[in-house]
Amino acid sequence: MTDKQKDDALDIKIVQRVAKLSALAVKENELAIYAQDLGGIIHWVEQLNELDVSTVEPMVGAENAKLRMREDKVTDGNCREAVLSNAPERIADFYAVPKVVE
């Protein structure tokens, strides 16, 4: 690892937090690699800070378009087998997951 890469690397704790938010198991030995890769990418995208965007409206996607609405009609559903057929685990007509304690 070069000194620059070391400088750019993200804090491991941040990687752990982001991995938790992303519901991704990251192995101990991978943490440092992600910290370095992500740090490098983040450092690189910070070139956007060169621009003054204070008066610019953010762009989400298609411009100048508005949401089309559908009528309130039941046109879908009633396809339980299609919905459940790919499930890794099911109990009767439910999806099943390890017991969730509230």
Binding site: I42, V45, L51, V53, V56, E57, P58, M59, V60, E63
Partner: peptide, 13 residues
């Protein structure tokens, strides 16, 4: 990051 990128996207557009 994200909001700034959306704004730059507008500039590119």
């Amino acid at each position: 990051y994200y909001l700034r990128a959306q704004k730059v996207r507008k500039l590119i557009y």
